[in-house]
Design a binder for these strands. Structure first.
Lengths: 232, 232
DNA sequence: TATTACGATTGATAAAAGTCAATCATAGAT
DNA sequence: ATCTATGATTGACTTTTATCAATCGTAATA
């Protein structure tokens, strides 16, 4: 594995507190690979042979059933994905595909499980990471079950605005069809939902969003830290 | 804490591999309490002061937003709940209420975090538990995003049938209004959904369900282990 | 036994969301 | 600069789901 990726990975919360020898041991069996855009890295149902670490690029986690497909989450560097399947030695529940040219480190799952039995700090870091993941999905579940698609979009825009620095003009982080899928609606409905937010001062030009009056949108969206706060 | 509950809790996967002294230390600050039905044990947003262990009875985890409420999961003995909030020392994302007379052990969260720093086996058990919880929510998320309410009900009935032993006649495990909420629909729609499954051999009398032809229903429901298998 | 309260069901209607087909806009490719 | 492929948008329509109001059924209570 190249030194650059090695250092970046070492800095991840997940690995930062590991004993040197355990981290080195873990990395010994790992390798880094470059993938073009739109490559399926993981297929749901497959055994979880590797823990994946996205070093650069972007990855979409999605699932399918009965000919339908839905986007579950987007992974941005530097972070791991499919950790739960790895530690449980169970099949992947989601598929993963690159959204752009990406660099991924692959760590054999059995090495991860071995390190986790060996290194208490690593085990503790995994706990924190998994608890974080769990809480994220719960928030997303609440978003889906408690809000209409218009409300979900409104809150997404507020989150994204904050994430982009808080200015009244910002860019969507991914293409609309995938945003629609993430938000649990069709692309057609997303288009209509954007129109539905015009009365609250939202205007759209391609991927550029303008929120005229933040407070006006907020009054409609009613953001809630127990759903929308992507920290805690 | 009474010996009976102590022993039952000790047997939980979460605590089974802990060093004796750590478990004893953890239980020193814990206490068991009896609650009548319909008591709110936890309110979302509150700091996570205690890890809860349901010793007997049943507990509903639910969330609210903007005057709406949805049931997220049902806890049956013996298991813990709100583990993620405890280990992250973050506010509860869900509220909890007893569905019947229940016995709950309360373990101070700071003791849990201390034990988790001290005891590698405990940390590892928490990992397994959290990974399990995470995967459950992901499955539920897929169920919600990929299926119509009729399909969700059909698959729920197949799961419940299996859970009840596989016979063609079985009982629903909770009242219909709560089942509706768990499945992400209104009680009115649940009624209609049951009717919609009649052509596939499903009949309902109160809480008693009859599935005439398991395979017929299965052909419609298309159950999938990556969504419906509540083990792995 | 009659009463009452509450959940379940039904019907009518409205709102939300999905589908299908056509068109538009735009970024790359030629 | 033009062509082309793909995603976005729009309109018409259907399906799904929610809402509201009324009624039914049943189990607990008086």
């Amino acid at each position: 594995m190249p030194d650059s990726a090695y250092g970046d990975i070492r800095k991840l919360d997940l690995f930062a507190q590991m004993a040197d020898e355990n981290f080195t041991g873990l990395m010994r069996g790992a390798y880094v690979q470059n993938f073009p855009s739109q490559i399926e890295l993981i297929t749901e149902g497959d055994p979880s042979d590797f823990l994946h670490v996205l070093v650069s690029g972007a990855v979409d986690l999605f699932s399918t059933w009965n000919g339908r497909e839905t986007s579950m989450a987007t992974i941005r560097p530097i972070s791991t994905f499919i950790l739960a399947a790895t530690v449980k030695d169970a099949p992947y529940l989601m598929s993963a595909r690159t959204l752009e040219k990406s660099r991924v480190a692959l760590i054999p799952s059995q090495d991860v499980r071995a390190a986790f039995d060996l290194d208490g700090n690593f085990a503790r870091a995994i706990v924190t990471e998994l608890a974080q993941c769990y809480r994220s999905v719960i928030k997303s579940q609440k978003d889906l079950k408690l809000r209409t698609s218009l409300e979900r979009l409104a809150n997404y825009l507020l989150r994204q605005q904050r994430h982009a620095g808080g200015g009244s003009v910002f860019e969507l982080e991914f293409e609309k069809r995938r945003l629609a899928s993430v938000l649990g609606m069709t692309p057609e409905n997303l288009s209509r939902a954007f129109k539905g937010l015009q009365p609250y001062g939202v205007t759209v030009a391609g991927t550029r969003i303008t929120i005229e009056d933040h407070n006006e949108l907020k009054r409609f969206a009613k953001p809630n830290r127990l759903i929308d706060d992507h920290q805690s």
